[in-house]
Design a protein around this nucleic acid. Structure first.
Lengths: 227, 227
DNA sequence: CGGCAATTTGAAGGCAGTCAATTAAAGTGG
DNA sequence: CCACTTTAATTGACTGCCTTCAAATTGCCG
């Protein structure tokens, strides 16, 4: 399909950014140092609010299990899901207050870190400093990458999302979508109807197949970033 | 115009994030410390490439004058302008290589900072550490804010862009657009035709007025974030 | 003044949105 | 375990916003 090959980049520029999980596994020393600062884990059920827009951003969160989303609600009731966070991801960077609400997209458990503690530890341990900078940088890259979807078709947006999710969650083929279609639609700037139709379309193109409404298998290996 | 009021947020959650310029002005000590590390300034003419996608990200850039843009080119020749950077802004955060090309959107001069030098200085001076973290955080917020435009109308996108540009450039009313329409269109995910039509539309609504093709005056004070 | 680039305006078509109805799945209580 | 309720997902017909293609106009710089 010509449109497809043209619209989608085969390579992923994010591949050089190790996930939080990878970096933490790499360095036991840092893990132990950070572990001493943690609060939690705290459990949240799906759709529970972890932090509100405007709340003081005293804590940084790390997803331990499940999926967490950041949202903005507009005055007309529309919602934008800015990002999803998977186990190992760190979220909640902000200067003073959270600019987005933080919510559990599935049942989830999260760890809390006092922001000032992280910063002061970073000034004593430059491995921690590099880790934090890398984490912030990789989240910036993800956000910028997501922003490039603004002028792309529904098909492109969905393929981008699926291959990203596949890579980040570490599964090479079958993806069990851990969040409802409405969340994905609000993340990609589509309606749930268009999302459903686009999945069907990709299926007809032979790019994906479905295992029930929440199960999707990516077929085209080019769409899966090589680890 | 009901649609307008509903679609656009009156408040800007970014207002709490000081710009690089403000923070640098605030603290002479940090300014002097960083100034010692600078290379440059280097001048670039409009459309000159400052760094290519894939280049080793050894240096962080600070805009001294003019406007710098970060871009991605797709295989079909389409371009996405991910962000614009104004004087005082820091850009080029990356793990190992730049994931976007960095180009001069107008004639511009930039300063260079060796990334490893910045990081090691941050581990010695926690004011510098906080500065860097704040700068990275505020850029993350801008990128996330931009990503929320993905499901909004052309009018919303343009108003968002204009009020942001007005606030960041420090001008309260008349904005001299420092970049061509094509750059703005590629940034907002629109065509230049739609951009032009949308400007005309805003003018007919009485929200803006024009002083020539590059000059725009915002009328509705609600759209200008209060400093 | 001439030539080129940038912007504006017009007309027609396409992709995604809206509205509405159906089907499937998940949660609840008996 | 099954009937019932509620939520989530799919499919269809139609509308609308933005794009595409084309042409005219303006502005800039030699």
């Amino acid at each position: 399909m010509a449109t497809l090959q043209n619209e989608n980049r085969v390579s992923s520029p994010i591949k050089n950014s190790p996930t939080a999980r990878e970096m933490l596994v790499d360095d036991q020393e840092i893990r132990r140092a950070l572990w001493a600062l943690r609060r939690g884990p705290i459990s949240f059920r799906r759709n529970n609010v972890i932090a509100c827009e405007g709340d003081s951003a005293d804590y940084i969160f790390m997803v331990a299990s499940g999926v967490v989303r950041t949202c903005r609600i507009f005055q007309n009731g529309e919602r934008a899901v800015v990002a999803f966070y998977l186990p190992g991801d760190l979220l909640g960077w902000a200067d003073k207050t959270h600019s987005l609400s933080i919510e559990a997209a599935s049942n989830a458990t999260v760890l809390l870190f006092k922001r000032t503690s992280l910063v002061s530890m970073a000034t004593r341990n430059n491995k921690v400093a590099r880790l934090l900078l890398n984490l912030a940088t990789s989240e910036l890259l993800r956000a910028q990458e997501h922003a490039t979807l603004i002028n792309r078709s529904a098909k492109s947006r969905l393929l981008h999302f699926l291959s990203n999710l596949s890579r980040r969650s570490g599964t090479r083929d079958a993806i069990g979508l851990p969040m409802p279609h409405q969340d994905i639609a609000d993340h990609l700037g589509l309606t749930i109807e268009t999302l459903s139709r686009t999945i069907t379309h990709l299926q007809q193109c032979g790019l994906v197949s479905r295992n029930g409404p929440r199960g999707i298998t990516l077929h085209d290996a080019r769409l899966i970033s090589r680890a």
